[in-house]
Design a protein around this nucleic acid. Structure first.
Length: 611
RNA sequence: GCCGACGUAGCUCAACGGUAGAGCAACCGCCUUGUAAGCGGUAGGUUAUGGGUUCGAUUCCCGUCGUCGGCUCCA
């Protein structure tokens, strides 16, 4: 299952990206961004609109502006109209290589462009502020009366942009160079395609994604709610929602146990001092809940498990190398004070239940433990019908958040690379994505709509064990510091449930469906038999409901169908006589009458097979 | 946290300066039904919240809370 496509898919993703950057569509979108910048600039007095950057992105493009007034979607029709005119006039895109001096003269009233020119002059970053290996040339692209500092490439003529495959999508705030300390600009997003059909298809895809939105489906399927009385980012789970949580956690727990992990429990509060020692407080104080004072001791709601698990390791006494590896797992609800604007449905909450494990091992055991974790991740993701995923090797960048211990970082990175290579895993390096205490291998899965979700993670930590004073006695009878491998499979129950809802559009595999079968009595006189069937199915371990409402059968089927229940079991006179049920699937397929025993066997097989 | 949009019954939406209306859901009847909505009735809202403007505010203005789209962040 699972890992089969790992290598192939990973290479494909990289190739796809390279191909996109030399494609006509890329040029069209890049050029559309320039045309849009011209149209927007013309809405204001000359010099009033400051332009920043406007690159192509997946599915479209954007351009960032600083403008005298806020744009709203009401401005889009006028901007689009002007863009259509510019396109139809058929202006050539002319490239011109210039000196830094010329560039500065051209953009003397454009502060953002001046800053970019300076970056180019220094030779260490491109026009988007991205670091560059060699000194770039400085070039302009001009079409009609609009000149932009740009590396290109562009289409030869604005007429190559299809006005019928172009649409402005939204306007949003964005910080200059992505830094929240900088000026906030207005970012206008647009989408552009080669053909009008492609645009239509893209918009359809957005509609589909909206239909699958877990916030909408969660309500419709009655899985969870948010309440103003409880607070933002704090979900409430219904009996059905909790059933799913339970199934998901039980499944991972069972799998972990099978792989040799042990489960521990470390509560919800800990002394603030602990997070000072581990280094979390310094890095994450803003997103931790405020301190609680009690008799001069300060406590915090637990924002992560690692310090607790490491403390437990310590309290359990002296450890011999013979005990290692020691693998501690916990389904712990953590509390993080995420900024209000960062909360989104179940995918970003303030109370999250992580399936977090910490493996304490010797440096020699890193590879074997990584392999074990990867194998487990492959099995679990496969069970959830994820077989298209890639791996990011998240390494430290050069900002200050990373613990300054170069030799430890090198050791951790080398160990992680070696483990990845030994498992023949292809990966993409992501600089500046590491945790503050170590590098990570992040597993990023694609769902059926092609969207990527970072789910699992394996992290090598040479830092925290030392900070918290962990030791083991080695073969040499001397004290050593163990390595800790941090590992999560599904990440958090809440987020993973959100992803599952969207991945399956609410039609969960039988094993995961909170209600697996609804029994539909045709008339009231069949209720008694329906209840009898329900009792037997429950005894066989199935989750079933009987629809005893006074509705017509058609309405009951419709309800069950809308709830995406895997099996609908219609029972009438015929079935009652013969100990049978008439099976209907949520695909709409009518399987006809089968014996109760056969249905139970079928359902149990479907559960086992994970369909 | 920042920029913008939005907030009307459980849900989806309407009315837009003259104190709110529909469908679905709920509830109550009737019907007893064979694979995606049977019929009739009842009930349900200080129009998120606090101020302001006005003879009068759901409607206009401001604050707060929340949601959404982005940005930032994500141990």
């Amino acid at each position: 299952m699972g890992g089969r496509f790992l290598f192939k898919e990973c290479r494909m993703a990289e190739k796809k990206k390279e191909k996109y950057e030399v494609s006509q569509l890329y040029k069209v979108r890049h050029s559309a961004a320039h045309v849009m910048a011209q149209a927007v600039t013309e809405m204001f007095e000359p010099g009033d609109a400051k332009v920043a950057i406007g690159p192509p992105i997946e599915d479209g493009f954007y351009y960032d502006f600083e403008l005298p007034r806020q744009l709203t979607p009401d401005d889009f029709p006028a901007i689009e109209k002007r863009m259509h005119e510019i396109i139809k006039e058929g202006h050539d895109f002319k490239k011109q290589v210039v000196s830094a001096k010329e560039a500065k003269a051209e953009f003397k009233d454009q502060p953002y462009k001046l800053e970019l020119v300076e970056g180019l002059e220094e030779g260490d970053e491109d026009e988007n502020g991205e670091p560059l290996a060699e000194k770039p040339e400085i070039s302009f692209y001009t079409h009609d009366g609009f000149t932009d500092l740009c590396r290109g490439p562009h289409v030869a003529n604005t007429s190559e942009i299809n006005p019928d495959a172009l649409k402005l999508m939204s306007v949003a705030g964005a910080y200059w160079r992505g830094d929240e300390k900088n000026q906030q600009l207005q970012r206008v997003y647009g989408t552009a395609w080669e053909k009008a059909d492609d645009l239509e298809q893209y918009l359809w895809r957005l509609e589909e994604a909206k239909k699958r939105d877990h916030r909408k489906l969660g309500k419709e399927l009655g899985l969870f709610y948010f309440s103003d009385d409880i607070g933002p980012g704090l979900p409430l789970f219904t009996p059905k929602g909790e059933m799913m949580r339970h199934i998901m956690e039980e499944y991972v727990r069972e799998t972990q146990t099978r792989y040799g992990y042990q489960h521990v429990w470390t509560g919800h509060l800990a002394k603030e001092e602990l997070y000072k020692k581990s280094g979390h407080l310094a890095n994450y104080e803003d997103s931790m809940y405020p301190p609680m004072e009690d008799d001069n001791v300060t406590y915090r709601l637990k924002p992560m498990n690692c310090p607790s698990h490491m403390t437990l390791y310590k309290e359990m006494g002296l450890h011999s190398y013979r005990e290692l590896p020691l693998r501690f797992g916990e389904f712990a609800t953590l509390y993080r004070h995420e900024k209000t604007g960062e909360l989104t449905g179940l995918t970003r909450v303030r109370a999250l239940t992580q399936d977090d494990c910490h493996t304490f091992c010797t440096p020699e055991q890193i590879e074997q433990e990584f392999t074990l974790a990867l194998k487990l991740i492959r099995e679990v993701l496969g069970r959830y019908h994820f077989d298209d995923y890639r791996v990011d090797l998240s390494l430290r960048g050069d900002d200050g958040k990373y613990v300054d211990a170069p030799e430890k970082w090198q050791a951790a990175e080398a160990a992680l690379r070696s483990a990845l290579d030994k498992n023949k895993v292809d990966y993409v390096e992501a600089y500046g994505e590491a945790a503050f205490y170590g590098p990570k291998a992040d597993i990023i899965a694609r769902d059926v709509l092609g969207r990527e979700w970072q789910l699992s993670t394996i992290q090598i930590d040479f830092i925290q064990p030392e900070r918290l004073g962990l030791t083991y006695i080695g073969e040499d009878n001397a004290e050593h510091t163990p390595v800790v491998i941090h590992r999560a499979v599904t990440g958090s129950t809440e987020r993973f449930m959100g992803v599952m809802i969207e991945h399956f559009a609410g039609a969960f595999p039988v094993w995961l469906a909170p209600v697996q079968a609804v029994i539909v009595p045709i008339a009231d006189r069949h209720i008694e038999y329906a209840e009898k069937v329900a009792t037997q199915l429950k005894a066989a371990g199935l989750r079933v409901e009987v629809d005893t409402s006074s509705e017509r059968m058609g309405a009951k089927i419709r309800d069950a169908q809308n709830q995406k229940v895997p099996y609908m079991l219609v029972v009438g006179d015929k079935e009652a006589e013969s100990e049978a049920v008439a099976l209907r699937l949520r695909s709409g397929k009518d399987e006809g009458a089968i014996s109760l025993a056969d249905f139970i066997a079928r359902a149990q097989k479907d559960v086992k097979d994970g369909v």
